[in-house]
Nucleic acid binder design. Structure first.
Length: 472
RNA sequence: GUCAGAAUGGCAGAGUGGCUAUGCCUCCGGCUGCAACCCGGAGAUACGUGAGUUCGAUUCUCACUUCUGACUCCA
C-alpha cells in the first residue's frame, strides 16, 4: 500500500489513483533562461523517483512536464544577449535535457511548451472572465482572487496577516486588488517589436506564468489529475494560483495529491547568485559523475533539506562506489559460476524475500529512497558475503537479478557492464598474467602500476584478474 | 507577524517508544606473493534545552532556544 505526503492535507495519505492501475502526474518543469542548477535537478529527480516507485509498485504512469519558454525572465535575458526568444530558450531547453541524461532521469511522456499552448490560455482566460473570476485592465487579464473563496487552501496562508508592503508590490496600481495576479499580460511595444506577442480580442498579449500549467495539465489529463509535483517554493503563489485558475474554471477538483520537494542548500545557506554558491549540474557531475550526484540526492529524503558540500558529495561517492563494487564483483563471479551446490546457498536464498519486502516497504512509505538505499546496502553485504566462497550459478543469477532490480528502481548503474576495457590495457593485463604465472612479482607490480596510470585497476582473485575502470 | 521544516558521534548522514544504521577516519584480524576488493572485530561521553505522557523517549505532546525556508522572480 503506497503512502504519500500530500501538501494539501499536510499528512501522509494512502494513495489511490483515479483510474485503477494508472497514475497521472504533472510536474512543474524548468524555465529555460539559464543553466539549471543542482537544486532544480533535485526536484526533477524527486519526480523521477516517484515515477520509478509507482512503476515498481505496478502502476502505469503518465508524466507530463512543462517547459516554460516564455515569461519575464526568458524575455529579459534573451534580449540581454541579443538572441531571439526562441533561439535563446531552445538553447537552454537542450541544456535541460542534457542534465536529465546526466542523472539518468527517465523522460516524461511529453514536454509541452508554453508557447505552443497560448490558444488554450486565451480560452481559459475567457472562461474565467465569463465566470466573473477574471477581468481585463489596460489590455492585461487578471485573476480576481476575491471571487475564489478557496484561495489559500494549499499554502494555508492567512492573507489578513500578510505584511502589506513586505510581500506586495504597492506600485501595482493597475490591479483591482494587489494580490490579483496576471493571467495574460499586454505585450509591451518592445515585445511587439521582437515578435513576442499573440493576437487576442483584448489586443496583443503574451502569457503570464501561472496560467500555462493549468492549461497544459488539463489538456493532458482533463480537469482532475492524481499528482502534481514541484519545489516547495512553488506552493505559493504558483500552485495556489493553478488551483484558483483550474478549479475556478471547471468547478472540479484539480489535483488530489500535491507533492513538493525540499530545497537543496549549500553549506547551510540558500543558493543564490549574490552568495556565489550556485552550482550548475555539469560542474558537479564533472567532479563526481552523474550517478554519484543521483545517489547523493537519493540518500536524503525529498522532504528534507539537502545540505550540499564537498564532504557530503565525497561521502556519497564512497557509498556509491561500494555498492557499484558489489555489482562488478558479482558479475565477475557470474562469469565463472558453477552448477555445484554450496553449503551457504540455502541461507542466502532464504534471506532474499525479506530483503525484498524491506525494499518495497521503504518505497511504499512516501517513496523513502534513503531507507531503500539502506536496504540496498543490506543486499550488497549479503552478496559480498556469499561471494566469499559460494559460486552456484543459480544463486548468483538470483542475487544479480535482485540487485539489478533494486538498482533499476533507484536509477543506478545504468552503464555498468557496458564499459569496454581498451586493447592496450588488456595487453598489459595479459603480460601481467604471464608474469604472475612465473611469480615475477616485481614485473607484476610494475604492470599493475602502469595499468593504474592508464585509469584502470586490477584486482587479483581466485578466478584471475578483475580489471575495472577507476571512477572519479 | 503568518505558514512550514530542522536540531543525532570527529565528519557526513539514515532510523527507531525499550537494542541506534551506514560510509569516511583510526586500529586489529582474515583473505592476498604484496596489494586492491571483500569479510570479521574494535574505537569514539551522539540523539538542542526544559517539562509532560509512559513501566520506559533520542523517537509522541507542549514550551523554549537556535537555524533554514516560504509569504517578492525562484526547484
Amino acid at each position: 500500500m503506497f503512502q504519500i505526503y500530500n501538501t494539501l492535507t499536510r499528512k501522509k495519505e494512502i494513495f489511490k489513483s483515479l483510474k485503477e492501475g494508472e497514475v497521472s502526474i504533472y510536474a512543474c518543469g524548468p524555465t529555460v533562461y539559464n543553466m539549471p542548477h543542482i537544486g532544480n535537478y533535485r526536484t526533477f529527480l524527486m519526480t523521477d523517483n516517484l515515477v520509478r516507485t509507482l512503476e515498481y509498485l505496478g502502476y502505469k504512469v503518465k508524466l507530463v512536464m512543462n517547459i516554460t519558454d516564455i515569461d519575464d525572465k526568458t524575455i529579459r535575458d534573451s534580449k540581454a544577449v541579443g538572441m531571439s526568444l526562441k533561439d535563446f530558450t531552445d538553447r537552454y531547453t537542450a541544456e535541460f535535457f542534457k542534465g536529465l541524461d546526466m542523472l539518468n532521469i527517465k523522460r516524461a511522456s511529453t514536454y509541452p511548451r508554453a508557447t505552443e499552448n497560448v490558444d488554450g490560455m486565451i480560452e481559459l482566460a475567457q472562461k474565467l472572465i465569463d465566470k466573473g473570476l477574471a477581468y481585463e485592465k489596460d489590455g492585461s487579464i487578471y485573476y480576481r482572487i476575491s471571487g475564489f473563496p478557496n484561495y489559500g487552501k494549499l499554502s494555508k496562508i492567512d492573507f489578513d496577516n500578510i505584511i502589506i508592503g513586505a510581500s506586495v508590490d504597492v506600485d501595482e496600481y493597475d490591479k483591482d486588488n494587489p494580490r490579483d495576479f496576471a493571467l495574460l499580460k499586454a505585450s509591451t511595444p518592445e515585445e511587439i517589436e521582437r515578435g513576442i506577442y499573440y493576437e487576442s480580442i483584448w489586443g496583443k498579449i503574451r502569457p503570464g506564468w501561472h496560467i500555462e500549467c493549468s492549461v497544459m495539465a488539463m489538456n493532458s489529463f482533463g480537469p482532475t489529475l492524481d499528482i502534481h509535483t514541484g519545489g516547495v517554493d512553488l506552493i505559493f503563489p504558483h500552485h495556489e494560483n493553478e488551483i484558483a485558475q483550474s478549479e475556478g474554471a471547471t468547478g472540479k477538483p484539480f489535483v488530489y495529491t500535491w507533492v513538493h520537494g525540499e530545497h537543496l542548500i549549500v553549506e547551510g545557506e540558500k543558493m543564490s547568485k549574490s552568495k556565489g554558491n550556485v552550482f550548475t549540474l555539469p560542474e558537479i557531475v564533472r567532479k563526481y559523475g552523474g550517478e554519484v550526484v543521483r545517489f547523493m540526492f537519493l540518500s536524503v529524503h525529498y522532504r528534507k533539506k539537502l545540505d550540499y558540500s564537498d564532504a557530503f558529495a565525497e561521502n556519497a561517492k564512497n557509498n556509491y562506489l561500494r555498492l557499484k563494487e558489489t555489482l562488478d564483483n558479482l558479475e565477475f563471479a557470474l562469469a565463472s559460476a558453477e552448477d555445484a551446490a554450496y553449503p551457504e546457498d540455502g541461507e542466502v536464498l532464504k534471506a532474499l524475500p525479506e530483503i525484498e519486502n524491506h525494499f518495497r516497504g521503504a518505497l511504499e512509505d512516501d517513496f523513502n529512497t534513503p531507507k531503500a538505499v539502506t536496504v540496498f546496502r543490506d543486499l550488497s553485504r549479503t552478496i559480498n558475503k556469499y561471494l566469499e566462497s559460494g559460486k552456484n550459478r543459480q544463486v548468483l543469477e538470483k542475487l544479480h537479478s535482485l540487485y539489478r532490480q533494486f538498482s533499476d528502481v533507484l536509477g543506478l548503474f545504468a552503464e555498468a557492464g557496458k564499459e569496454e576495457i581498451p586493447e592496450n590495457v588488456m595487453k598489459l593485463v595479459e603480460e601481467r598474467e604471464a608474469a604472475r604465472k612465473n611469480k615475477e612479482w616485481a614485473i607484476s607490480d610494475a604492470l599493475r602500476e602502469k595499468i593504474k596510470s592508464l585509469g584502470y585497476i586490477v584486482q587479483d582473485t581466485k578466478e584471475g584478474q578483475n580489471v575495472k575502470k577507476v571512477e572519479y
